[in-house]
Design a protein around this nucleic acid. Structure first.
Lengths: 121, 121, 121, 121
DNA sequence: GTGGTCTAGACCACG
DNA sequence: GTGGTCTAGACCACT
Protein backbone atom coordinates (compact mmCIF):
# COMPACT_ATOMS: atom_id res chain seq x y z
CA UNK A 1 0.00 0.00 0.00
CA UNK A 2 1.68 3.07 -1.30
CA UNK A 3 -1.14 5.55 -1.23
CA UNK A 4 -1.27 9.25 -0.56
CA UNK A 5 -4.51 11.01 0.24
CA UNK A 6 -5.15 14.69 0.03
CA UNK A 7 -7.98 16.22 1.98
CA UNK A 8 -7.48 19.64 0.47
CA UNK A 9 -8.23 18.66 -3.10
CA UNK A 10 -11.83 18.60 -4.28
CA UNK A 11 -11.47 15.03 -5.53
CA UNK A 12 -13.34 12.51 -3.37
CA UNK A 13 -11.13 10.29 -1.26
CA UNK A 14 -12.57 7.07 -2.65
CA UNK A 15 -11.74 8.25 -6.15
CA UNK A 16 -8.19 9.10 -5.20
CA UNK A 17 -7.85 5.58 -3.86
CA UNK A 18 -9.41 4.10 -6.97
CA UNK A 19 -7.17 6.02 -9.34
CA UNK A 20 -3.96 5.31 -7.49
CA UNK A 21 -4.59 1.61 -7.07
CA UNK A 22 -5.85 1.09 -10.60
CA UNK A 23 -2.74 2.92 -11.74
CA UNK A 24 -0.54 0.61 -9.69
CA UNK A 25 -2.29 -2.44 -11.06
CA UNK A 26 -2.09 -1.34 -14.67
CA UNK A 27 1.51 -0.21 -14.53
CA UNK A 28 2.52 -3.56 -13.10
CA UNK A 29 3.36 -2.56 -9.54
CA UNK A 30 0.64 -4.79 -8.18
CA UNK A 31 0.74 -8.10 -10.01
CA UNK A 32 -1.95 -10.72 -10.54
CA UNK A 33 -2.96 -12.47 -7.36
CA UNK A 34 -1.70 -9.71 -5.12
CA UNK A 35 -3.95 -9.43 -2.09
CA UNK A 36 -5.18 -5.97 -1.24
CA UNK A 37 -5.14 -5.17 2.47
CA UNK A 38 -8.45 -5.84 4.25
CA UNK A 39 -10.71 -2.82 4.04
CA UNK A 40 -10.67 -2.31 7.78
CA UNK A 41 -6.92 -2.43 7.98
CA UNK A 42 -6.54 -0.13 5.00
CA UNK A 43 -9.08 2.26 6.50
CA UNK A 44 -7.13 2.35 9.72
CA UNK A 45 -3.79 2.90 8.03
CA UNK A 46 -5.07 5.57 5.70
CA UNK A 47 -7.08 7.09 8.52
CA UNK A 48 -10.30 7.15 6.60
CA UNK A 49 -13.63 5.45 7.09
CA UNK A 50 -14.12 1.79 6.26
CA UNK A 51 -16.95 2.70 3.94
CA UNK A 52 -14.73 5.04 1.98
CA UNK A 53 -12.23 2.28 1.32
CA UNK A 54 -14.99 -0.12 0.44
CA UNK A 55 -16.36 2.27 -2.16
CA UNK A 56 -12.97 2.42 -3.84
CA UNK A 57 -12.59 -1.38 -3.76
CA UNK A 58 -16.07 -1.73 -5.26
CA UNK A 59 -15.10 0.46 -8.20
CA UNK A 60 -12.00 -1.63 -8.74
CA UNK A 61 -14.15 -4.74 -8.75
CA UNK A 62 -16.57 -3.15 -11.20
CA UNK A 63 -13.70 -2.27 -13.53
CA UNK A 64 -12.61 -5.87 -13.45
CA UNK A 65 -9.29 -5.00 -11.84
CA UNK A 66 -9.79 -7.05 -8.69
CA UNK A 67 -11.86 -10.01 -7.56
CA UNK A 68 -13.54 -9.77 -4.21
CA UNK A 69 -14.09 -13.04 -2.38
CA UNK A 70 -16.21 -12.77 0.72
CA UNK A 71 -14.42 -14.15 3.71
CA UNK A 72 -11.10 -14.33 1.92
CA UNK A 73 -10.10 -10.94 0.63
CA UNK A 74 -9.60 -8.94 -2.55
CA UNK A 75 -7.22 -10.20 -5.20
CA UNK A 76 -5.76 -8.42 -8.19
CA UNK A 77 -7.34 -10.03 -11.24
CA UNK A 78 -5.34 -11.91 -13.83
CA UNK A 79 -4.88 -10.49 -17.29
CA UNK A 80 -2.49 -10.92 -20.12
CA UNK A 81 -0.06 -8.09 -20.87
CA UNK A 82 -2.25 -7.23 -23.88
CA UNK A 83 -5.36 -6.96 -21.76
CA UNK A 84 -3.46 -4.82 -19.31
CA UNK A 85 -2.33 -2.48 -22.03
CA UNK A 86 -5.80 -2.26 -23.44
CA UNK A 87 -7.42 -1.56 -20.10
CA UNK A 88 -4.80 1.07 -19.39
CA UNK A 89 -5.33 2.86 -22.68
CA UNK A 90 -9.07 2.62 -22.20
CA UNK A 91 -8.92 4.38 -18.87
CA UNK A 92 -6.40 6.96 -20.01
CA UNK A 93 -8.23 7.76 -23.23
CA UNK A 94 -11.48 8.25 -21.41
CA UNK A 95 -9.87 10.88 -19.24
CA UNK A 96 -7.89 12.32 -22.11
CA UNK A 97 -11.00 13.06 -24.11
CA UNK A 98 -12.26 15.52 -21.57
CA UNK A 99 -8.77 16.93 -21.14
CA UNK A 100 -8.39 17.67 -24.83
CA UNK A 101 -11.80 19.24 -25.14
CA UNK A 102 -10.67 21.62 -22.44
CA UNK A 103 -7.48 22.47 -24.31
CA UNK A 104 -9.42 22.92 -27.52
CA UNK A 105 -11.78 25.40 -25.90
CA UNK A 106 -8.77 27.71 -25.53
CA UNK A 107 -7.99 27.40 -29.20
CA UNK A 108 -4.84 25.36 -28.66
CA UNK A 109 -3.53 23.34 -31.57
CA UNK A 110 -2.20 19.83 -31.15
CA UNK A 111 1.35 21.11 -31.58
CA UNK A 112 0.89 23.71 -28.88
CA UNK A 113 -0.48 21.09 -26.52
CA UNK A 114 2.46 18.80 -27.16
CA UNK A 115 4.82 21.71 -26.64
CA UNK A 116 3.33 22.47 -23.22
CA UNK A 117 3.24 18.79 -22.34
CA UNK A 118 6.95 18.45 -22.95
CA UNK A 119 7.63 21.35 -20.62
CA UNK A 120 5.99 19.72 -17.62
CA UNK A 121 6.20 15.99 -18.16
CA UNK B 1 -23.38 33.45 -26.39
CA UNK B 2 -22.38 30.19 -27.94
CA UNK B 3 -22.60 27.88 -24.97
CA UNK B 4 -23.55 24.26 -24.60
CA UNK B 5 -24.51 22.81 -21.24
CA UNK B 6 -24.79 19.20 -20.21
CA UNK B 7 -26.82 18.11 -17.22
CA UNK B 8 -25.68 14.54 -17.29
CA UNK B 9 -21.99 15.24 -16.82
CA UNK B 10 -20.66 15.50 -13.31
CA UNK B 11 -19.10 18.89 -13.97
CA UNK B 12 -21.05 21.71 -12.28
CA UNK B 13 -22.96 23.93 -14.68
CA UNK B 14 -21.35 27.13 -13.41
CA UNK B 15 -17.96 25.64 -14.16
CA UNK B 16 -19.00 24.63 -17.65
CA UNK B 17 -20.04 28.24 -18.20
CA UNK B 18 -16.83 29.56 -16.74
CA UNK B 19 -14.62 27.30 -18.81
CA UNK B 20 -16.36 27.93 -22.08
CA UNK B 21 -16.50 31.69 -21.72
CA UNK B 22 -12.94 32.03 -20.50
CA UNK B 23 -11.95 29.87 -23.42
CA UNK B 24 -13.77 32.16 -25.84
CA UNK B 25 -12.17 35.22 -24.31
CA UNK B 26 -8.66 33.82 -24.40
CA UNK B 27 -8.90 32.43 -27.92
CA UNK B 28 -10.09 35.78 -29.19
CA UNK B 29 -13.69 34.96 -29.96
CA UNK B 30 -14.88 37.50 -27.43
CA UNK B 31 -12.77 40.61 -27.83
CA UNK B 32 -11.97 43.38 -25.38
CA UNK B 33 -14.97 45.47 -24.53
CA UNK B 34 -17.47 42.82 -25.51
CA UNK B 35 -20.49 43.02 -23.22
CA UNK B 36 -21.70 39.81 -21.65
CA UNK B 37 -25.47 39.43 -21.60
CA UNK B 38 -27.19 40.39 -18.33
CA UNK B 39 -27.35 37.56 -15.83
CA UNK B 40 -31.10 37.19 -16.01
CA UNK B 41 -31.14 37.12 -19.77
CA UNK B 42 -28.33 34.58 -19.94
CA UNK B 43 -30.04 32.44 -17.32
CA UNK B 44 -33.24 32.50 -19.31
CA UNK B 45 -31.59 31.65 -22.61
CA UNK B 46 -29.48 28.86 -21.17
CA UNK B 47 -32.39 27.66 -19.06
CA UNK B 48 -30.37 27.58 -15.89
CA UNK B 49 -30.72 29.31 -12.55
CA UNK B 50 -29.73 32.94 -12.12
CA UNK B 51 -27.56 31.90 -9.23
CA UNK B 52 -25.63 29.56 -11.48
CA UNK B 53 -24.87 32.27 -14.02
CA UNK B 54 -23.91 34.69 -11.31
CA UNK B 55 -21.42 32.20 -9.93
CA UNK B 56 -19.80 31.80 -13.32
CA UNK B 57 -19.61 35.57 -13.93
CA UNK B 58 -18.06 36.02 -10.48
CA UNK B 59 -15.36 33.49 -11.29
CA UNK B 60 -14.62 35.30 -14.52
CA UNK B 61 -14.33 38.58 -12.62
CA UNK B 62 -12.04 36.94 -10.06
CA UNK B 63 -9.80 35.65 -12.83
CA UNK B 64 -9.55 39.16 -14.22
CA UNK B 65 -11.19 38.17 -17.48
CA UNK B 66 -14.14 40.51 -17.20
CA UNK B 67 -14.93 43.75 -15.42
CA UNK B 68 -18.29 44.21 -13.81
CA UNK B 69 -19.66 47.74 -13.80
CA UNK B 70 -22.69 48.02 -11.60
CA UNK B 71 -25.68 49.19 -13.56
CA UNK B 72 -23.92 48.87 -16.89
CA UNK B 73 -22.94 45.27 -17.36
CA UNK B 74 -19.97 42.96 -17.60
CA UNK B 75 -17.22 43.82 -20.07
CA UNK B 76 -14.47 41.61 -21.36
CA UNK B 77 -11.24 43.06 -19.94
CA UNK B 78 -8.53 44.52 -22.11
CA UNK B 79 -5.21 42.76 -22.47
CA UNK B 80 -2.35 42.84 -24.87
CA UNK B 81 -1.86 39.79 -27.04
CA UNK B 82 1.06 38.83 -24.78
CA UNK B 83 -1.09 38.99 -21.67
CA UNK B 84 -3.75 36.91 -23.37
CA UNK B 85 -1.25 34.26 -24.32
CA UNK B 86 0.18 34.23 -20.83
CA UNK B 87 -3.18 33.93 -19.13
CA UNK B 88 -4.16 31.19 -21.51
CA UNK B 89 -1.05 29.18 -20.86
CA UNK B 90 -1.44 29.77 -17.15
CA UNK B 91 -4.90 28.26 -17.12
CA UNK B 92 -4.01 25.42 -19.43
CA UNK B 93 -0.81 24.52 -17.60
CA UNK B 94 -2.56 24.44 -14.27
CA UNK B 95 -5.00 21.87 -15.61
CA UNK B 96 -2.33 20.04 -17.52
CA UNK B 97 -0.29 19.42 -14.41
CA UNK B 98 -3.00 17.34 -12.83
CA UNK B 99 -3.69 15.64 -16.15
CA UNK B 100 -0.09 14.54 -16.56
CA UNK B 101 0.20 13.28 -13.03
CA UNK B 102 -2.77 11.08 -13.81
CA UNK B 103 -1.13 9.74 -16.96
CA UNK B 104 2.10 9.14 -15.09
CA UNK B 105 0.33 7.09 -12.45
CA UNK B 106 -0.39 4.53 -15.18
CA UNK B 107 3.25 4.38 -16.09
CA UNK B 108 2.82 6.17 -19.40
CA UNK B 109 5.87 7.75 -20.96
CA UNK B 110 5.75 11.15 -22.63
CA UNK B 111 5.91 9.50 -26.03
CA UNK B 112 2.99 7.23 -25.25
CA UNK B 113 0.94 10.20 -24.08
CA UNK B 114 1.69 12.11 -27.27
CA UNK B 115 0.82 9.04 -29.29
CA UNK B 116 -2.60 8.77 -27.64
CA UNK B 117 -3.14 12.51 -27.89
CA UNK B 118 -2.65 12.43 -31.63
CA UNK B 119 -5.25 9.72 -31.93
CA UNK B 120 -8.04 11.79 -30.42
CA UNK B 121 -7.14 15.41 -30.99
CA UNK C 1 -43.47 5.00 -5.51
CA UNK C 2 -45.09 1.64 -5.36
CA UNK C 3 -42.46 -0.34 -3.55
CA UNK C 4 -42.62 -3.20 -1.09
CA UNK C 5 -39.67 -4.18 1.03
CA UNK C 6 -39.18 -7.44 2.81
CA UNK C 7 -36.80 -7.66 5.72
CA UNK C 8 -37.21 -11.39 6.05
CA UNK C 9 -35.77 -12.29 2.67
CA UNK C 10 -32.03 -12.64 2.29
CA UNK C 11 -32.00 -10.22 -0.62
CA UNK C 12 -30.41 -6.87 0.28
CA UNK C 13 -32.85 -3.98 0.56
CA UNK C 14 -31.03 -1.84 -1.96
CA UNK C 15 -31.29 -4.63 -4.48
CA UNK C 16 -34.99 -5.06 -3.88
CA UNK C 17 -35.39 -1.37 -4.57
CA UNK C 18 -33.24 -1.58 -7.67
CA UNK C 19 -35.12 -4.52 -9.11
CA UNK C 20 -38.56 -3.14 -8.46
CA UNK C 21 -37.84 0.29 -9.86
CA UNK C 22 -35.97 -0.96 -12.89
CA UNK C 23 -38.91 -3.25 -13.49
CA UNK C 24 -41.32 -0.35 -13.30
CA UNK C 25 -39.20 1.70 -15.68
CA UNK C 26 -38.82 -1.07 -18.22
CA UNK C 27 -42.45 -2.15 -18.17
CA UNK C 28 -43.52 1.42 -18.81
CA UNK C 29 -45.03 2.28 -15.44
CA UNK C 30 -42.47 5.03 -14.93
CA UNK C 31 -42.08 6.97 -18.16
CA UNK C 32 -39.23 9.09 -19.46
CA UNK C 33 -38.71 12.25 -17.45
CA UNK C 34 -40.47 10.91 -14.40
CA UNK C 35 -38.81 12.30 -11.29
CA UNK C 36 -37.93 9.79 -8.62
CA UNK C 37 -38.65 10.97 -5.09
CA UNK C 38 -35.67 12.58 -3.33
CA UNK C 39 -33.55 9.98 -1.60
CA UNK C 40 -34.26 11.41 1.83
CA UNK C 41 -37.98 11.45 1.27
CA UNK C 42 -37.94 7.94 -0.15
CA UNK C 43 -35.83 6.75 2.76
CA UNK C 44 -38.33 8.19 5.20
CA UNK C 45 -41.34 6.72 3.45
CA UNK C 46 -39.79 3.29 3.05
CA UNK C 47 -38.39 3.51 6.55
CA UNK C 48 -34.88 2.63 5.49
CA UNK C 49 -31.60 4.51 5.65
CA UNK C 50 -30.81 7.28 3.19
CA UNK C 51 -27.66 5.46 2.19
CA UNK C 52 -29.61 2.35 1.30
CA UNK C 53 -31.83 4.28 -1.07
CA UNK C 54 -28.84 6.03 -2.54
CA UNK C 55 -27.16 2.74 -3.30
CA UNK C 56 -30.21 1.60 -5.24
CA UNK C 57 -30.41 4.90 -7.15
CA UNK C 58 -26.71 4.61 -7.99
CA UNK C 59 -27.25 1.21 -9.54
CA UNK C 60 -30.11 2.59 -11.60
CA UNK C 61 -27.84 5.38 -12.81
CA UNK C 62 -25.10 2.89 -13.65
CA UNK C 63 -27.56 0.83 -15.67
CA UNK C 64 -28.49 3.94 -17.62
CA UNK C 65 -32.07 3.83 -16.40
CA UNK C 66 -32.03 7.21 -14.67
CA UNK C 67 -30.04 10.42 -14.83
CA UNK C 68 -29.00 11.98 -11.57
CA UNK C 69 -28.63 15.73 -11.56
CA UNK C 70 -27.12 17.18 -8.43
CA UNK C 71 -29.34 19.81 -6.91
CA UNK C 72 -32.27 18.88 -9.10
CA UNK C 73 -33.16 15.25 -8.67
CA UNK C 74 -33.19 11.91 -10.44
CA UNK C 75 -35.00 11.56 -13.74
CA UNK C 76 -36.00 8.46 -15.63
CA UNK C 77 -33.84 8.40 -18.76
CA UNK C 78 -35.25 8.62 -22.24
CA UNK C 79 -35.17 5.64 -24.54
CA UNK C 80 -37.02 4.49 -27.58
CA UNK C 81 -39.40 1.54 -27.25
CA UNK C 82 -36.77 -0.58 -28.98
CA UNK C 83 -34.09 0.38 -26.48
CA UNK C 84 -36.50 -0.33 -23.66
CA UNK C 85 -37.25 -3.76 -25.01
CA UNK C 86 -33.58 -4.48 -25.47
CA UNK C 87 -32.61 -3.36 -22.00
CA UNK C 88 -35.45 -5.39 -20.56
CA UNK C 89 -34.43 -8.56 -22.36
CA UNK C 90 -30.82 -7.95 -21.43
CA UNK C 91 -31.65 -7.82 -17.74
CA UNK C 92 -34.04 -10.74 -17.87
CA UNK C 93 -31.72 -12.94 -19.89
CA UNK C 94 -28.87 -12.30 -17.51
CA UNK C 95 -30.96 -13.59 -14.64
CA UNK C 96 -32.48 -16.34 -16.72
CA UNK C 97 -29.10 -17.83 -17.51
CA UNK C 98 -28.41 -18.64 -13.89
CA UNK C 99 -31.99 -19.82 -13.43
CA UNK C 100 -31.75 -22.30 -16.27
CA UNK C 101 -28.40 -23.66 -15.15
CA UNK C 102 -30.12 -24.44 -11.86
CA UNK C 103 -32.96 -26.25 -13.60
CA UNK C 104 -30.50 -28.15 -15.75
CA UNK C 105 -28.59 -29.39 -12.73
CA UNK C 106 -31.73 -31.35 -11.79
CA UNK C 107 -31.82 -32.94 -15.21
CA UNK C 108 -34.92 -31.05 -16.33
CA UNK C 109 -35.58 -30.82 -20.04
CA UNK C 110 -36.82 -27.63 -21.68
CA UNK C 111 -40.30 -29.10 -22.01
CA UNK C 112 -40.44 -30.01 -18.36
CA UNK C 113 -39.39 -26.50 -17.40
CA UNK C 114 -42.07 -24.97 -19.62
CA UNK C 115 -44.61 -27.34 -18.15
CA UNK C 116 -43.80 -26.23 -14.60
CA UNK C 117 -43.68 -22.58 -15.66
CA UNK C 118 -47.21 -22.77 -17.02
CA UNK C 119 -48.43 -24.15 -13.71
CA UNK C 120 -47.28 -21.16 -11.68
CA UNK C 121 -47.18 -18.21 -14.04
CA UNK D 1 -17.46 -36.10 -7.07
CA UNK D 2 -18.03 -34.06 -10.18
CA UNK D 3 -18.22 -30.56 -8.76
CA UNK D 4 -17.18 -27.20 -10.08
CA UNK D 5 -16.75 -24.23 -7.79
CA UNK D 6 -16.50 -20.58 -8.66
CA UNK D 7 -15.00 -18.05 -6.31
CA UNK D 8 -15.92 -15.03 -8.35
CA UNK D 9 -19.66 -15.57 -8.27
CA UNK D 10 -21.61 -14.12 -5.39
CA UNK D 11 -23.17 -17.46 -4.54
CA UNK D 12 -21.70 -18.97 -1.35
CA UNK D 13 -19.52 -22.00 -1.91
CA UNK D 14 -21.46 -24.21 0.47
CA UNK D 15 -24.59 -23.46 -1.52
CA UNK D 16 -22.90 -24.27 -4.80
CA UNK D 17 -21.97 -27.62 -3.29
CA UNK D 18 -25.45 -28.19 -1.96
CA UNK D 19 -27.15 -27.36 -5.25
CA UNK D 20 -24.87 -29.47 -7.39
CA UNK D 21 -25.00 -32.54 -5.18
CA UNK D 22 -28.73 -32.38 -4.61
CA UNK D 23 -29.09 -32.02 -8.37
CA UNK D 24 -26.97 -35.12 -8.94
CA UNK D 25 -28.98 -37.09 -6.41
CA UNK D 26 -32.33 -36.10 -7.83
CA UNK D 27 -31.41 -36.62 -11.45
CA UNK D 28 -30.17 -40.11 -10.66
CA UNK D 29 -26.45 -39.62 -11.07
CA UNK D 30 -25.86 -40.50 -7.44
CA UNK D 31 -28.01 -43.50 -6.61
CA UNK D 32 -29.38 -44.71 -3.31
CA UNK D 33 -26.69 -45.95 -0.99
CA UNK D 34 -23.92 -44.02 -2.68
CA UNK D 35 -21.38 -42.91 -0.10
CA UNK D 36 -20.31 -39.29 -0.15
CA UNK D 37 -16.60 -38.76 0.40
CA UNK D 38 -15.53 -37.89 3.96
CA UNK D 39 -15.68 -34.18 4.70
CA UNK D 40 -11.93 -33.78 5.03
CA UNK D 41 -11.21 -35.58 1.82
CA UNK D 42 -13.82 -33.62 -0.10
CA UNK D 43 -12.51 -30.37 1.36
CA UNK D 44 -9.01 -31.25 0.27
CA UNK D 45 -10.00 -32.24 -3.24
CA UNK D 46 -12.20 -29.22 -3.80
CA UNK D 47 -9.66 -26.98 -2.10
CA UNK D 48 -12.19 -25.42 0.21
CA UNK D 49 -12.53 -25.25 3.96
CA UNK D 50 -13.78 -28.22 5.96
CA UNK D 51 -16.36 -25.94 7.50
CA UNK D 52 -17.73 -25.17 4.07
CA UNK D 53 -18.17 -28.81 3.14
CA UNK D 54 -19.72 -29.60 6.48
CA UNK D 55 -22.27 -26.85 5.96
CA UNK D 56 -23.26 -28.29 2.58
CA UNK D 57 -23.53 -31.86 3.92
CA UNK D 58 -25.70 -30.59 6.79
CA UNK D 59 -28.05 -28.93 4.35
CA UNK D 60 -28.32 -32.15 2.38
CA UNK D 61 -29.10 -34.04 5.58
CA UNK D 62 -31.73 -31.46 6.52
CA UNK D 63 -33.37 -31.82 3.11
CA UNK D 64 -33.55 -35.57 3.65
CA UNK D 65 -31.33 -36.28 0.68
CA UNK D 66 -28.58 -38.02 2.62
CA UNK D 67 -28.29 -39.92 5.89
CA UNK D 68 -25.30 -39.35 8.09
CA UNK D 69 -24.15 -42.35 10.09
CA UNK D 70 -21.57 -41.37 12.65
CA UNK D 71 -18.35 -43.20 12.13
CA UNK D 72 -19.45 -44.67 8.83
CA UNK D 73 -20.14 -41.84 6.45
CA UNK D 74 -22.89 -40.08 4.56
CA UNK D 75 -25.20 -42.19 2.38
CA UNK D 76 -27.57 -41.03 -0.30
CA UNK D 77 -31.06 -41.73 1.02
CA UNK D 78 -33.41 -44.22 -0.59
CA UNK D 79 -36.52 -43.06 -2.36
CA UNK D 80 -38.89 -44.44 -4.86
CA UNK D 81 -38.85 -42.89 -8.33
CA UNK D 82 -42.08 -41.09 -7.40
CA UNK D 83 -40.53 -39.58 -4.30
CA UNK D 84 -37.53 -38.48 -6.30
CA UNK D 85 -39.68 -36.77 -8.86
CA UNK D 86 -41.71 -35.09 -6.17
CA UNK D 87 -38.68 -33.83 -4.28
CA UNK D 88 -37.16 -32.58 -7.49
CA UNK D 89 -40.25 -30.64 -8.50
CA UNK D 90 -40.54 -29.31 -4.98
CA UNK D 91 -37.07 -27.81 -5.09
CA UNK D 92 -37.39 -26.53 -8.61
CA UNK D 93 -40.82 -25.00 -8.09
CA UNK D 94 -39.68 -23.19 -4.98
CA UNK D 95 -36.92 -21.54 -6.96
CA UNK D 96 -39.12 -21.01 -9.98
CA UNK D 97 -41.65 -19.02 -8.00
CA UNK D 98 -39.16 -16.29 -7.22
CA UNK D 99 -37.81 -16.45 -10.77
CA UNK D 100 -41.21 -15.86 -12.30
CA UNK D 101 -42.08 -13.02 -9.95
CA UNK D 102 -38.90 -11.38 -11.20
CA UNK D 103 -39.90 -11.85 -14.82
CA UNK D 104 -43.37 -10.55 -14.11
CA UNK D 105 -41.99 -7.37 -12.57
CA UNK D 106 -40.69 -6.49 -16.04
CA UNK D 107 -44.11 -6.98 -17.54
CA UNK D 108 -43.18 -10.16 -19.38
CA UNK D 109 -45.98 -12.45 -20.45
CA UNK D 110 -45.73 -16.23 -20.17
CA UNK D 111 -45.21 -16.50 -23.91
CA UNK D 112 -42.36 -14.01 -23.85
CA UNK D 113 -40.70 -15.90 -21.03
CA UNK D 114 -40.97 -19.18 -22.91
CA UNK D 115 -39.58 -17.48 -26.01
CA UNK D 116 -36.51 -16.26 -24.14
CA UNK D 117 -36.12 -19.61 -22.38
CA UNK D 118 -35.94 -21.42 -25.70
CA UNK D 119 -33.18 -19.10 -26.84
CA UNK D 120 -30.82 -20.01 -24.03
CA UNK D 121 -31.78 -23.49 -22.87
C1' DG E 1 -34.05 21.58 -1.02
C1' DT E 2 -31.27 18.55 -4.06
C1' DG E 3 -27.60 14.98 -4.31
C1' DG E 4 -22.36 13.85 -2.87
C1' DT E 5 -19.26 12.56 0.58
C1' DC E 6 -17.74 10.97 4.96
C1' DT E 7 -17.85 9.25 9.75
C1' DA E 8 -18.18 5.74 13.54
C1' DG E 9 -20.00 1.86 14.74
C1' DA E 10 -23.08 -2.25 14.53
C1' DC E 11 -24.66 -6.90 13.05
C1' DC E 12 -24.51 -10.77 9.85
C1' DA E 13 -22.75 -14.33 6.41
C1' DC E 14 -18.80 -16.77 4.90
C1' DG E 15 -14.65 -19.52 5.55
C1' DG F 1 -10.76 -12.54 10.32
C1' DT F 2 -12.88 -11.58 5.81
C1' DG F 3 -16.31 -8.77 3.19
C1' DG F 4 -21.65 -7.30 2.95
C1' DT F 5 -25.23 -4.61 4.68
C1' DC F 6 -27.38 -1.10 7.32
C1' DT F 7 -27.97 2.79 10.53
C1' DA F 8 -28.15 7.75 12.05
C1' DG F 9 -26.38 11.76 11.43
C1' DA F 10 -23.14 15.35 9.75
C1' DC F 11 -21.14 18.67 6.40
C1' DC F 12 -20.59 20.40 1.75
C1' DA F 13 -21.55 21.71 -3.24
C1' DC F 14 -24.98 22.82 -6.53
C1' DT F 15 -29.38 24.94 -7.99
Amino acid sequence: MNISISNTTEKPIYQQLYEQISGQILNGELGSGYVLPPIRKAAHELRVSVITVKKAWEELERSGLINTVTGKGCFVAEFSPEEMLQKRNEMVLKQMESDTSYYKSFGLTLDEVIELLKRIY
